[in-house]
Every structure is written in structure tokens, then in C-alpha cells.
Design a protein around this nucleic acid. Structure first.
Lengths: 333, 333
DNA sequence: AAATGTTTGGACAACGATGTCAAAATCTAC
DNA sequence: GTAGATTTTGACATCGTTGTCCAAACATTT
């Protein structure tokens, strides 16, 4: 910038004025500065500008479990779309449920002075964010309920959704319904299990702990289903509480030739679910909507809203496509 | 920082030393500074540090067509994983094939002084990056061939992959093979069409322009297939040159009840492809590998490599799962 | 022609951090 | 106890910008 000023024969401040499109610089000088900037390939330094101005960095960070998961990818896309109007850019990273990584990344992003954080927490407690928030840092928790932290969040009604799925299976005559979720240390997984329990209780069915499994990956879920089906008393229906689990279950059932025998409902949409045979019944959430709402809440905070923190609980939709409507075979009923 | 120094009763520089874990500060002072920092909730400002040090910002940007597409999401994940060791964070954004957006975002990221750019270009020419690169900015083009720019890039062998798919269909007796790709202004789409043409020519089949379509979205592709099948002389096979096109074709064929009649091969993997009936034959690329290679190349440049720029052309794999092995019905042959 | 108003341009300090270099404090050895 | 070596500490300038405030240049009015 100094060089540009020298080449254009003006002061630093005048160059700054031109760069920022400020009023009060004669056209002749504007031209001279611009061509000098061009010649020297001058590039404005946003970091220095932000430093001086003490302003927002116009950047936010999104931390999710796994960016390659459809749900998280859709979330990211929706968030990026929502903040784009305001010229805000998005950092993102995968946590793989490692609390350490969350802490490290959050510290890094705070050092970078991002304006806000959208977090699908891997940590059991987010109390460590309290002091940051007190200092004006905006945080919105997505897909999970915040723990030990009073902040905005956006989730779906996991208990209700899981209840709906389980009740649906019960209504179709099932009494032995397996539950496969992500690790139960995860809030969302527990909520879905609670919904499952609730539905069983409401139907006066006993809870069989041997039907409760957790599996992080598609392969793990597939192995669980294979094992379950080989047991002495296999379930007649499966409720998979996560998209990867659903994919694993579909794959395993098909391999066993049981896709038309064992009922299956999954939580969270999977691609091509309606094109499989049978179609896979799903309790769907709308990741785009979750992302948009979360980004909107974050933006409101950045705009200075001091409203009381609140959570948005979005509804789920049961999509009956066939797999969830399979009835138990006679000898199992 | 000033406040921390005051509270600890030391100079600014000493605080800086403690923050940066530099040698030569007595333990007593280290403790005093740390507890002062704690008390004041001091957070190191990376932007200011980078400004003073004139160093790398340890951030890179990834610009792709659509972050919610499986391919791009897998790319992002692989890149994030690769650069994480070095404590580098990743910005990402979707371009939706809008060249303007690419230019704007690149300018923004340069102003933010990201160390490097991973770009799936939407622009027809990337010449505008030449001067940035001359100034030491690292650029790697992914999934497409750079235009008017000498730089590193990572692509798959699109011509060969498309040729392989088309040849496979021809070998199964097809002579009327439809081609559905992304917009043909896109380099990669053109390369795949070229591979398709090449295979037809090699088999002495004429090229029928009425069988060439482009469709950006799943819905558009579905509509194209529906239209094609309603025509007087429908194809007996379809080659979809993009994952969204494949999804659209699968959906349309199934709706028409033609999934076991019309052969289909897609370029780029789709989820659950092997679980559909018939399984969907795919010319697969490995997005994780593409991302890792691209990130690796970028890192090498950041480490100062001045090697001649070069492109990596990764192979594709034909996965025969059923849909691509359907033979034309007798009256069509 | 003097007084007033309106643009336009520039000097300077500051944002938060750190490299340089010299001063102060501590230690060693005779 | 003192010269010399060594460890700790701090003053200052600087990275690239921009807000503040004043000065110069020019136009307008009476």
C-alpha cells in the first residue's frame, strides 16, 4: 500500500480511501491510484483491516461429526448459502466425536476471531464456551442439545421421531424391535433411544437390552444386523437411529435375503431410499432447514440481538415407503 | 495483552514470550503471566500475529460446484483430514457453476491471505490466477483441467472412463446409447462426451445428436430420461456422466418400469448403487484419493517446492453391478 | 477583495502482536 | 570483591490498515 501511494504520488490515506470506495477523492486521483494498484498487484489485506477496525471478520466456523455424511454436508451447504449474502465465509471441520479435537479447533477458531461458531458437539459438556460467549462470541449448537451452556440451538424432536418410528413398527405387529444407533454417549442417540423406549412402554412391551446396539459406521451396523439375525431369537423389525446405521442395515438384510421379511425404519434420510425394493421407510429431518435456522440465529446474534437464548425444535416426518410396513412372519408374531 | 502484562507486572514482550512458549522466561514469571492471562480471559490473536510475522495463515480454501454433492463432500473431508496434521484449517464454498461467484470468492480469500486454493473451477479460464501464483499463491485445480493457467491439478481420466462405460454398453449389444451429462461448457462433461464419442466411433456407430442431453439436477435428468423413453426411437442404453444424472435416470427408469429393460451406466459413484435392483453399474472415481492428492500437492507448494507444475490423472474403475449388463430387447437390436 | 464555505489531501496514532537489540539481574571464577 | 559470562527482561519499531483531525486548495458569496 505504501508502494502504491508512492507510485501514485499520493498519501497512504488516499490509497485507503480509494480502496474503500470512500467519498472525497477526485476522479483523477482515483484513476491514478487504481492503475498504480493494478501495476503493483496490490491486494487489500483483510486481516490488517479487521485488526485496525476491530470489526467482525465475516467468517464463521462449522464443526460437525463428519463432513462427508450427507446430513452434515447438507447442513454446511445450507449454512454457506444463508451467510453468503452477508459476504461471510465458512470454515468447517470434522470432529469424529473426539472431544479433544473440538476443543483444539474451537481454540484455533477463536484465535482467528471468527464471528461465530456452529457446533455439533463431540464434547460431553460445552461449559468451556460460557466465558467466550460472555465476551461476545456467538455460538449455535446444531443437531444436539447444549450441555452446561445456555445458548441457541436447533435440533429435531428426536424423542418424538423415534417414538413415531417405533410406534409405527408396533402398529404393524412387531414386538421384537432392534435398536441400532450411534454411540449412546451422544445426546441425540440417547434421545432417540428414549423415544424408542417410550413407544415400547406405551405399548406395554418389555425392553430387551439384547436388542440395543450401537455402531458408528456403515460396516459396523451391517455386522450388527448380520449378528442379530443369526441369534436364537432375532428381531422381526429394526429401527436404525442414524443414516449410516440404516445403510448398513439395508445392506446386511439384502445380503441375507431378508429385506422383505424384516421390517426396517431409519432415522434421517438416505439417498435412493424410495428406489430400493422395498422402499426404505424413514423418519426424515430436513438438514437444509436446520442449517438455515441455525445460520439465521447466528446472524441475529451477530446483529446484536440480546434476546434470551432459545432452542428451535423442528418436526420430523415419517415417510412410509414399504420397509417399515412389513408385518412379522406368522411364527414370530 | 497489554492488560495481561500490567496485571502480571511484566512487559508486553514477556507476555508474548510466554504465549509463544519461548525459552528464557523464569518459571515464576511464566506462572504469573499465565494466571493473569487466565484471569483476564486473554485470547491470542492469530491475525495480528500473522500480520507481524508475515507468515502463513495456515488456512486454505476449497471451492467446488456443490458442497452437498457426495463427491464434493468427500473431497472436502479428505482435504480437511490431510491438512489437519499441519494445523491448517479449511474454508469452503459452493460455486454452482457461476464464474462470478468464483472470482468474488477467490478475491475474498486472497484478501484473507489464505495460503492456498483448491479449485473446481466454474470459470472458463483461470488466467486471472496467474499473477497471484507469480506472487507465491499456491493453487491446485481439482476434478477439472486448468485453462490458460499453468498449475498443478488432479483429475481422473474422464475420456478413458467414459470410453470404458460406452464400450461396455456396446459390447452388450447396444447401438443407441443416450448420453446425459452436466452442462457441456464444463470441461469434465466435455471430456466424458469425448470418451463416449470415441467409443462410438471405434465401434463404427454413428453419433446421434438427439441422444445427447445435459441436465444439472436430479430432477432435470429424470425429466430427460422420461422424455427420451417416450420418443419414437428411444435408446436401449443410457450413459449418465454425473452422479446426479445417474440418480435421476435410476428414478425415471424405475418409475417407467424400465429398470430391467434399459441398460444404465453412471460416471461417479452413487450411494446404495449395489443395493438397487438391478445394481447400478458405475465407472467409479475415488474422491478421497483425489482430495488427498490435491491436498498433498498444495502442501508441497507451501513447503516451497518449485518443481514444474504437473497434473495427476487418476484411473477409474468400472463396477459391473447389473444395470450396465442388460442387453437390448430383441426388437431393438 | 475579503470572508466564508466546500472539497480534497495528508500526518499521525492505533489495532495486537513480535523481532531486534540493549539493559538489568544473576551467576561464575579468580 | 570484581571482571566477565550468562540469563532475564524490556523499550522500541514494525507488520498493513484506517479513524481522527487539521491544512491546503478551490469555489462561492457579498
Amino acid at each position: 500500500m505504501r508502494d502504491v501511494a508512492a507510485l501514485a504520488g499520493v498519501s497512504l490515506k488516499t490509497v485507503s480511501r480509494v480502496v474503500n470506495n470512500e467519498e472525497g477523492v477526485s476522479e483523477i486521483l482515483v484513476d491514478r491510484v487504481q492503475s498504480a494498484a493494478e501495476k503493483l498487484r496490490y491486494r487489500h489485506n483483510l486481516a490488517a483491516s479487521n485488526l485496525r477496525r476491530g470489526q467482525r471478520t465475516k467468517s464463521v466456523a462449522l464443526l460437525v461429526q463428519d463432513l462427508s455424511n450427507d446430513f452434515s454436508a447438507a447442513l454446511l451447504r445450507a449454512i454457506d448459502d444463508t451467510v453468503r449474502d452477508r459476504d461471510v465465509v465458512v470454515f468447517s471441520a470434522s470432529l469424529d466425536e473426539e472431544a479433544d479435537r473440538e476443543r483444539k479447533l474451537v481454540a484455533n477458531f477463536i484465535a482467528r476471531r471468527v464471528d461465530g461458531l456452529l457446533l455439533m458437539p463431540a464434547s460431553p459438556s460445552q461449559a468451556y464456551l460460557q466465558s467466550e460467549m460472555a465476551a461476545g462470541f456467538a455460538v449455535v449448537i446444531v443437531d444436539r442439545i447444549p450441555h452446561d451452556l445456555s445458548t441457541d440451538y436447533v435440533v429435531v424432536d428426536n424423542v418424538e421421531g423415534a417414538n413415531k418410528a417405533t410406534t409405527h413398527l408396533i402398529a404393524h405387529g412387531h414386538r421384537r424391535i432392534a435398536f441400532i444407533s450411534d454411540d449412546l454417549t451422544i445426546d441425540t442417540a440417547r434421545a432417540r433411544r428414549d423415544g424408542y423406549y417410550q413407544a415400547l412402554r406405551d405399548a406395554d412391551l418389555s425392553i430387551d437390552e439384547t436388542l440395543i446396539y450401537s455402531a458408528r459406521t456403515v460396516e459396523a451396523a451391517s455386522a450388527v444386523v448380520t449378528e442379530l439375525m443369526a441369534s436364537a431369537t432375532p428381531p422381526t423389525a429394526i429401527f436404525t437411529a442414524r443414516n449410516t446405521a440404516t445403510m448398513g442395515a439395508v445392506s446386511a438384510l439384502r445380503k441375507l435375503g431378508l429385506q422383505n421379511t424384516i421390517a426396517l425404519i431409519g432415522f434421517d434420510e438416505i439417498r435412493m431410499a424410495d428406489l430400493l425394493d422395498p422402499g426404505i421407510s424413514i423418519v426424515a429431518q430436513d438438514p437444509g432447514r436446520i442449517g438455515r435456522e441455525a445460520a439465521r440465529m447466528l446472524i441475529e446474534r451477530l446483529d446484536g440481538s440480546q434476546d434470551h437464548h432459545h432452542g428451535i425444535i423442528l418436526p420430523t416426518t415419517l415417510l412410509a415407503r414399504g420397509s417399515g410396513e412389513i408385518r412379522p412372519t406368522s411364527n414370530e408374531a
